[in-house]
Amino acid sequence: TGIVNVSSSLNVRSSASTSSKVIGSLSGNTKVTIVGEEGAFYKIEYKGSHGYVAKEYI
């Protein structure tokens, strides 16, 4: 489990790349469930599926 550490919002992406499609966003202080790691990204549970967020903001 981690907490989103941004002042505005954090993009949730379809894969572990900054060039991948943005599938949603999370507000600061949102609790997320981390299910894996891939490079500079965490794989998280997101809306019944999975998404990826940059580690530096969790």
Rank of each mutant, 00 (worst) to 15 (best):
L26V: 10
Y57T: 06
S20H: 05
N11K: 13
T30R: 04
S9R: 14
V6I: 13
E37N: 06
S25F: 15
A16K: 03
V53N: 00
S25L: 14
N11C: 12
K43C: 08
T18V: 13
N29S: 09
K55Y: 02
S14G: 10
V53M: 02
Y42C: 03
R13W: 15
L26S: 01
Y42Q: 01
K43M: 09
L10N: 03
L10A: 13
G51P: 00
S19Y: 10
V22L: 08
F41Q: 02
G48C: 07
F41P: 00
S20G: 10
V22W: 05
Y46N: 01
V32K: 00
Y46V: 03
V35G: 02
K55N: 02
H50L: 09
S19T: 12
G2C: 08
S17M: 07
V4K: 03
V53A: 05
R13N: 14
S14V: 15
L10E: 03
H50F: 15
E56N: 08
S7W: 08
N5P: 05
S20Y: 08
V12M: 02
G36W: 04
K31P: 11
G39T: 03
N29T: 07
K43A: 06
R13K: 08
I3S: 07
Y52T: 00
S14P: 04
N29V: 06
N29H: 13
S7E: 12
S9N: 12
K21W: 09
K47I: 07
V6R: 05
E37W: 07
K21R: 12
S25A: 11
K47E: 14
A54Q: 15
E45G: 05
G39P: 03
H50T: 11
N5S: 10
G39E: 06
V22H: 04
L10M: 07
G28D: 09
V32E: 00
G36S: 08
G36F: 04
N29A: 11
S49V: 11
V53C: 05
L26T: 02
Y52E: 00
R13E: 04
S14I: 15
S15Q: 14
A16P: 13
I34S: 01
L26K: 01
I58V: 10
I23E: 02
A40K: 10
T18M: 12
I58S: 02
G24I: 03
T33K: 12
T1G: 08
S20C: 05
S20T: 04
G48P: 05
S27K: 14
E56S: 07
G51R: 02
G48Y: 06
S8N: 13
E38A: 09
A16G: 06
T33M: 12
I34C: 03
G36D: 08
L26F: 03
R13D: 02
A40T: 09
Y52V: 01
Y46A: 01
Y52A: 01
Y42W: 12
T30W: 06
K55D: 00
K55I: 05
I44A: 00
E38G: 03
E45I: 14
A16F: 04
I44R: 00
E37Q: 11
T18C: 13
I58F: 05
A16M: 04
L10I: 15
A54L: 15
G36I: 03
S8W: 15
G51L: 01
V32S: 01
T33S: 09
S9I: 11
K47M: 15
G24A: 04
N29F: 12
G28L: 13
S7T: 13
I44L: 03
H50V: 12
Y42L: 06
K47G: 12
T33N: 12
Y46S: 01
F41S: 03
K43V: 11
I23D: 01
L10Q: 05
K31Y: 13
G51A: 10
A54G: 09
E38L: 07
S15W: 09
K43I: 13
S49P: 01
F41D: 03
I34W: 05
S25Y: 15
E45D: 08
K31E: 13
V22Q: 05
I34K: 01
G39Y: 05
T18Y: 13
S14K: 12
V12A: 01
A54N: 12
G28T: 09
V35R: 05
S14E: 15
S14Y: 14
